[in-house]
Design a binder for these strands. Structure first.
Lengths: 191, 191
DNA sequence: CGTCCTCTTAACACCTGGTGCTAATCTAAG
DNA sequence: CTTAGATTAGCACCAGGTGTTAAGAGGACG
């Protein structure tokens, strides 16, 4: 321990270390933090209080909560993005804001399959059937989409012949068209 | 409470309900479970013991751990699935096992954009360039893929003209072709 | 020099969400 | 009727905390 340090400076350094440790591993308990920083558990508690750092269980709960919501949103929603308007069998509209985790590493450009997913899920949603599956698609990535861009997708059913629905989807960012696609979606009753 | 039920049947039903509740929300404590199921906390504890369900704190920790370490989902890896083989500018191969969160609700059929994402990311990976972006694609979903299916994707660069690369991707489950696609991928240097 | 103030550590009671154990009921099935 | 399984209860204990009070250990400063 740096005993030669002035008392105030030592405390400050410890606070920095504490923040770093907690950020690096939110699962660390006060006990572990105390032994890592060479002070008593009580000191850690006071430090956390000063710095507004919640206790380990809360930190863990938070991580779990975040992850749980996130997984749910990617996984469990039938439509990628927010469904704004839906006229079954006719047209539909959804909105999605591009986030950093949709981007290609370091470039800030959104990866194509996120646009595809948004368009595809909207195309499936607009079809008036219990279950609908995409049969084929032709898509064009017209312009690059970047982190923070607000994407608006519009789907229109252009043709129905039997179980086959042709759906046109366009995604815009502001006035710019960034994606267009034509989806052949099939209505299905049985699994 | 269903008092007319036979005791054993009641217990069985409660066990099913318990599993369902815990799966739906891992954050639920014994207290909450007890009141939801109309039995005492002790009964819940015994049930958890029988069913091998860990306590709430462990469940939360697990969720947090999972999220913290291996963020899977669509977003965070450069190639969706596991990249098995890669010959830059020529061909590539990846493998992905379909999980329940990729499926359409209740049907067990994997949603198309997961196949697209697997194929697209492989197509981008196979192109020999610092950064590559998909310009357009034509895809066919040949057969339904179900939860548990092991998908193998093969990508082959079929044509290069300037920065434009044409990549053919096929995904198979066992011997069956489930997806084919043709991707136009553009090599880019600047962002 | 003494005094004062901050930092640090300690001790105690309490909280939540559990575990392990023993014991008392109660019910249904043999 | 007897007995085994299901349910509930009470008790001591645990981890990882909170809040409070109290007591030393350094400085800083008149």
């Amino acid at each position: 321990m740096p005993e030669m340090m002035k008392i105030r400076a030592r405390k400050n350094k410890r606070h920095q270390d504490l923040k770093r440790l907690v950020a690096a591993d939110p699962f660390t308990t006060d006990q572990e933090l105390a032994s890592k920083l060479g002070v008593s558990v009580q000191t850690i508690r006071l430090d956390r209080l000063e710095l507004g750092i919640p206790d380990a269980r809360s930190r863990i709960r938070e991580v779990a909560r975040d992850a749980y919501e996130k997984v749910k949103s990617i996984t469990e929603s039938e439509v990628i993005g927010e469904l704004i308007d839906l006229e079954l069998g006719e047209s539909a509209l959804s909105v999605l804001t591009a986030t950093a985790d949709m981007a290609l590493a370091h470039s800030g450009v959104i990866r194509g399959h996120h646009l595809f997913a948004m368009a595809n899920s909207l195309a499936v949603a607009v079809v008036d059937a219990k279950v609908a599956l995409t049969g084929s698609a032709t898509v064009r990535f017209v312009r690059r989409v970047r982190v923070g861009d607000r994407m608006v997708a519009k789907a229109r059913v252009t043709e129905i012949s039997g179980r086959r629905h042709t759906v046109s989807v366009a995604i815009r960012v502001g006035a710019d068209e960034v994606f267009t696609g034509e989806f052949a979606v099939y209505a299905v009753e049985d699994t």
